[in-house]
Design a protein around this nucleic acid. Structure first.
Lengths: 347, 347
DNA sequence: CTTAGCACTCGGAGAGAATGAGTGCTAACA
DNA sequence: TGTTAGCACTCATTCTCTCCGAGTGCTAAG
């Protein structure tokens, strides 16, 4: 592939991102030193190769999916953030935060604000944290609340109804049981085998208390699974794609999850048709992971029209994930606590 | 106001609701026994009186806000639900539910599904319930989770950071303090005066523990304040109004709250321009209250284009609020518990 | 290989003209 | 006096036609 051809493709994408109109050969002349005729020839070839397409004969060219792919993978020039820009972005994140959930939500909101797109953020940190407290609290006739707090401050509760009321003794047993067998255990360790062991340890109480345990297991699986979506209304102004299609997509947690899961290896840019099931034409989704103490902890993502300012927005996205990683790693807050718990557990 | 004139107005609204097009005199002939000329004369008068308007000279008539108002207040014939319809609606509600929150959310979802509109639901029951448990749980360096459970099973938690770490003794004092002074107290009773009294009772612990108390008060004020919105995406298919305007409105809890608050006297139908601040043209919001044991407990609402099938949807809405009232009142679950707490408190 | 030149294509904007739904008004009728 | 048939009029919508120009592909010369 010719160097000039690449330059032309790049110029077409850049121009199209700005104007949203098919790009003609004359417009390219400003970017590439060649006559319009030469450019036309090159463009014709790019079209033959599948990087560009014409909406109709007498129109300019528009990048295809393949064109965008090449652009984002090899051509795009991300301009590194200036110090001022970094300061501006920093100012959009909270200096101080109570929970990681707050922090990532703020970042997601800030990114949505900056890009006028929708953003998603998944924080799976709680999954890797420890159970720091489990409590069962009776709230009514056979009604109980199970409360679970993890070492990083995530709190989850679930209401459940049992077949029988629990006696004071049973509750007390469960309390002790939890303290001895679950406190300090990483959520990720709650495998089926582990649960099996737990059941045995419960002895005669198993019959009555196992519903509680199974609810607890369910909860531990749900922790850190939810994905927050922000800035959905930003998408309503774009005409590039079917709005109700994309809003429906963003409302579907499970569908979102599939996409977020794919990003866990680094920056990921996906275009609508590249993956079956994701049928939102002319839209793209960009995700970047963040980590906690070197371990993958979640991902922040950006969803908008395919004609999006990649060169500008990707640095934003990456800067935010970078900052999140810095802030949640090795910080003074939760983390010290986590370490404490870890040593405590090494009995 | 002539009887025939009312019939004509009614027919115009009915027809417009179905077609969405300006209604002409011929179309009305099918509903009212009179010639098109007579109807035209009447319509001209209705227009003069402000009940109808013409988009342009040679078009039919469209109801004005005033016209809709008269229609919903006096003309509309709500067809009472048949037994089958009732069964169908019942099937959309859960037979059994764990929390009131679940129940009302289900109702809201069902209504959104039925009407293809957005729905809102506010459940203020927790406000009138009792504090059944408050707990402070340390989760990290100076980090604490305050947990509050109310007698009807609502759970709320808040993370907060204090200036100092609390000693074991301080925590224990707070625990006892809460058990003695707050358990069993109705949330609504947490007035400023009551808080004053509490502060005094804390004696020397006041300095260190008052941040916890003030957080607790804040939480108690927030309980039952949030409004759930469902079916937003249903609104995307309507062209009658500015979509991003309405979505933005629905995203604004405080704005919503203002509207819900107005409904607390019975069925309420509002059209966009009747209230300043609510600037979504061509939309209407219908709300109906539900109650628990005879006391106002919340409201369910429907938001859609002004051209909405009132005669059909209002019975749905009212049936749901009726059912909710029945289900949450005097039920076997939480309520027995509430009563128990009430007697317990009568020390 | 590059470029200037030219004929060609085709979507979009704009101007009438035709259509037809619906009106207001008038005059006749019950 | 209220109702109705009839008719001229209005005006948004739809279509057809033309024109415009941005942009192309091709060709021939540099």
């Amino acid at each position: 592939m010719d160097d000039r051809k690449l330059k032309i493709l790049s110029a077409v994408v850049d121009e199209y991102i700005v104007t949203g109109e098919p790009v003609g050969s004359k417009a390219i002349m400003e970017h590439v030193k060649a006559s319009s005729a030469t450019i036309r020839n090159e463009m014709a070839e790019l079209e033959k190769q599948g990087y560009l397409e014409q909406p109709h004969t007498s129109a300019g060219r528009v990048p295809t999916y393949k064109g965008y792919r090449l652009y984002v993978d090899r051509l795009m020039q991300q301009h590194p953030l200036s110090d001022e820009e970094k300061r501006r972005l920093d100012a959009m994140l909270p200096e101080d935060y109570l929970t990681e959930r707050d922090l990532v939500e703020h970042a997601s909101l800030a990114l949505a604000e900056l890009t006028r797109c929708a953003t998603v953020v998944a924080n799976s940190t709680p999954k890797f944290s420890l159970i720091s407290k489990v409590e069962v609290i009776p709230t009514g006739k056979r009604m109980y609340v199970i409360l679970m707090i993890t070492s990083n401050g995530e709190i989850k509760n679930k209401v459940c109804r049992l077949e029988f009321d629990l006696t004071h003794e049973q509750l007390e047993f469960f309390d002790n049981f939890v303290r001895e067998n679950l406190n300090g255990v990483p959520l990720s360790e709650l495998s089926d085998a582990y649960v099996e062991k737990l059941s045995e340890a419960m002895g005669t109480y198993m019959m009555t208390l196992s519903p509680l345990v199974s609810e607890l297991i369910k909860m531990s699986k749900e922790v850190g699974e939810d994905i927050m979506v922000n800035g959905k209304s930003n998408l309503l102004t774009y005409k590039d794609f079917n709005q109700s299609e994309i809003i429906t997509f963003l409302d579907d947690q499970s569908e979102l999850k599939k996409f977020i899961d794919q990003t866990f290896s680094g920056l990921n840019i996906m275009f609508s048709p590249e993956k079956d099931g994701f049928v939102i034409h002319n839209s793209s989704i960009i995700t970047a992971p963040f980590s906690k103490d070197g371990r993958m902890a979640g991902a922040l993502g950006l969803i908008g029209p395919m004609r999006i300012d990649y060169a500008k927005f990707i640095p934003y996205l990456e800067y935010f994930t970078q900052r999140i990683s810095d802030m949640i790693s090795d910080g003074p807050g939760d983390d010290a606590d986590t370490k404490k718990k870890l040593t405590e557990r090494g009995e």
